[in-house]
Amino acid sequence: MTVEQLATLATFGSVWAVLAVGHNLADHVFGQSDHQAANKGAPTTEDVAAGASPRRGWAAWDGAVHHAFETVSAIVIAR
Rank of each mutant, 00 (worst) to 15 (best):
N24T: 11
E4A: 12
H23N: 09
V76F: 14
V15Y: 04
G13Y: 00
G41Q: 08
D62M: 14
T2C: 03
Q32V: 05
A78K: 05
L19M: 12
Q36H: 07
S73I: 08
V76G: 09
A20C: 13
A20N: 07
D62A: 15
V21K: 03
P54M: 07
N39G: 04
W61Q: 12
S14D: 03
M1T: 11
G13P: 00
A78S: 12
A26G: 10
T45C: 11
A60Y: 07
A74P: 00
A50Q: 08
G13K: 00
S14Y: 02
A52W: 01
G63C: 03
L19K: 05
A74Y: 05
R79K: 10
D47H: 10
A42W: 09
T11V: 12
Q32F: 01
T8Q: 07
I77M: 09
G57Y: 02
L19E: 06
V29C: 04
H23Q: 11
N39T: 12
A7P: 00
N39E: 11
K40L: 13
G57F: 04
I77H: 07
V65A: 13
Q5M: 09
L6A: 07
N24S: 15
G13R: 02
D62Q: 11
G51P: 01
V21M: 04
D47W: 03
T11M: 06
S14M: 12
S73D: 06
A78W: 01
S73R: 11
V76M: 11
A10E: 06
T8L: 09
A17D: 02
V29P: 01
V29L: 15
S53L: 08
H35V: 14
F12Y: 10
A42T: 11
T44C: 04
T8E: 01
F69H: 10
D62Y: 09
A68S: 14
G51Q: 01
W61T: 14
L9C: 09
T45Y: 08
D34Q: 15
D27A: 12
V72A: 14
V48L: 02
A50C: 04
A68T: 00
H35P: 08
Q5S: 10
A59I: 14
A26S: 12
H66N: 11
I77Q: 05
V48E: 03
D47R: 08
A68P: 01
V3R: 08
K40H: 10
R55D: 14
L6C: 09
A52L: 15
F30S: 02
F12V: 15
D47V: 09
D34C: 07
A20Q: 04
V15W: 00
V15R: 04
H28C: 05
D62R: 13
A64V: 06
F12R: 13
L9V: 04
Q36P: 02
V15Q: 06
W58Q: 12
T2Y: 03
Q32N: 02
V76P: 03
V29D: 04
A74K: 15
T11S: 08
A52K: 10
H23W: 05
A17E: 01
D27T: 13
G63N: 07
Q36F: 03
R55L: 14
G31F: 00
G41P: 01
L6E: 03
D27M: 12
